[in-house]
Amino acid sequence: MEAIGLAVAGYLDVVVLSTPPPPWEDPSLFAQQVLSGIASGSLFAILALAVVLIYRSTDVLNFGQGEMAMFTTFIAWSFMTQMPLWPAFFLTLLVAAAMGAALERLVLRPVEEAPVLNAVIVTLGLYTIFTGLALRVWGPLPKGFGPFTLDFLFFEIDLAGPVCAGEVCIGKLSVATFVAAVIIMALLFVLFQRTMLGLAMRATAQNRTASRLVGIPVGRMLSVGWGLSAAVGAVAGVFVAQNVGLSTGSLAAILIFAFAAAVLGGLDSPVGAIVGGLTIGVVRNLAGTYVPSEVGSVDLVVAFLLIVLVLMVRPTGIFGRRALRRV
């Protein structure tokens, strides 16, 4: 488990000054930290969206989410050695969606009626399976992965390098991550609030018997939920890997932050996942900067405390409305 600690400490952290001046004395440092916090928070947000998507549509918490995302990112990497960026990207999304749907059908459907513990255990099985498979197929060495140059026909955007306003800079990649998070959230919002498919998915998560009685093919909805979630997870993986490189541990390392984000947002709210992700990102960065260095690194502790605090004070999160079910 050492890998997790190391991987987290190894990236996204801005240089920690030995004794940082308080925010009012160096506002640009503060602004810089907030911005980088938003950058890393966007990563957490996308993975949190994937978590929320499955939870909201199938009532299962997927502990294998990070590993599935990592696995599909390796698939993207393999595709990219064969074809240009965009086809590889969309093909990956397709493969991920098919994989997610197939997993739901094969291993989650059989425990659907059983207590929630059984489903959690199955997703933990997925966790170790995907880690193991990725190690076996792609090996333990990190792979170079981006930042890419996006080709939009009429213009190109190189995601490498920063954009600056005065002293405060942010990586272009971070901006792209943030934009991607917002786009995914908007798409999910439209799906759930404005389409019949989304409505049927929400109904399925809530009451399966009633859903069947109005004619919703419940099994298909569950598969769609997993498929969509796996695709969103793949997007998360692609961005995480561009930020920190691609290795078997890189997604597992941020799963705790994604969970913290999802919990903060209420586990079933896409908007909540984004707000939660950004909050965790910023708080984590500020803690990293202003907590005295003698204390040591506290990024995980911050996530842990946030999770515990939210669960104690408001278990439905900030944006969650749903009452807790299936104890």
């Binding site: 918490l61 513990l117 969970f259 669960l311 278990p315």
Partner: peptide, 8 residues
Amino acid sequence: AGPYLAIA
């Protein structure tokens, strides 16, 4: 409830 405890 279950899932929250699992996360915690």
